[in-house]
Design a protein around this nucleic acid. Structure first.
Lengths: 131, 131
DNA sequence: ATAAACCCTGTACCCTGGTATAGAGTCAAG
DNA sequence: CTTGACTCTATACCAGGGTACAGGGTTTAT
């Protein structure tokens, strides 16, 4: 049911040191400790760390991840505020998706051009993401 | 028509040093030089640098950006190879888009839950990106 | 009851992606 | 023809996000 830091690291696919680092950065809550001082984790922590891992791959900084994770944390924050912040994040995400779709379109174009006859003088990839 | 490195930096919205750095990393071609040694850039470079900037925001490393940009570069590379690489990139991008949509869904859920009555005991954001 | 395999804290180090600075040359406006 | 703004190379430095010891205590399997 519970696990040590080494087991958590294996399950979540990260280095042990990374977990301690995230704890210092307050990206994950301080876990319960045994009398010996050993950290003890529940399965919830696996989710949380995987979330961080994925969000990072998507280009969010640890600071941004912190913002995402703490959106719902403080019960004192008024709802209207939480909603506002969530909506800001949402439009940020929409923007990212749009940009990724542009790059994808360019790659498809490149791939097709290639299939026909390879006369790729211009680079369709650059057309993506121009401003 | 052509511009100096300072003008390019301003147009593309980056630091001058960043441009020289990208040149060393071979993310942009070596520009033409005046007799004095000054670099001279065409408008093409603005596009290229903005592409790099955006791709970075989307979580691509400079190494990955290099791969994207050089996909169509070497005329010796056989078409089949270029297509294969493009397709790998495309499915990588699809994966990213899917993950972003998951996060977005969670944020929407959070925002809605908040709107109704604020009893947000569980964190819907964590549900996104599990696995 | 003793190794092997963990875990603890603290500190130092590493890589990526820049950014700054020094010391010297160039350009252009008055 | 000079002065201020720009550029050059080379080297040093910085922040973010980890990763790796060192020196010392736990756990567990035999």
């Amino acid at each position: 049911m519970t696990m040590t830091i080494g087991q958590l690291a294996k399950k979540a696919g990260v280095n042990i040191e990374t977990i301690r680092y995230y704890e210092r950065r307050e990206l994950i809550p301080k876990p319960h400790r045994r009398k010996s001082g050993y950290r003890e984790y529940s399965n919830e922590f696996v989710k949380r760390i995987q979330f961080i891992r994925h969000a990072k791959e998507l280009g969010f900084s640890l600071k941004e991840v912190h913002e995402l994770l703490s959106l719902r944390l403080d019960p004192e924050t008024p709802c209207s505020e939480v909603r506002k912040r969530a909506e800001v994040k949402i439009s940020d995400i929409d923007e990212r998706i749009k940009n990724l779709q542009q790059i994808k379109k360019s790659l498809l174009k490149l791939s097709e051009a290639c299939q026909r006859s390879c006369p790729i003088s211009e680079c369709p990839i650059l057309e993506a993401l121009e401003k």
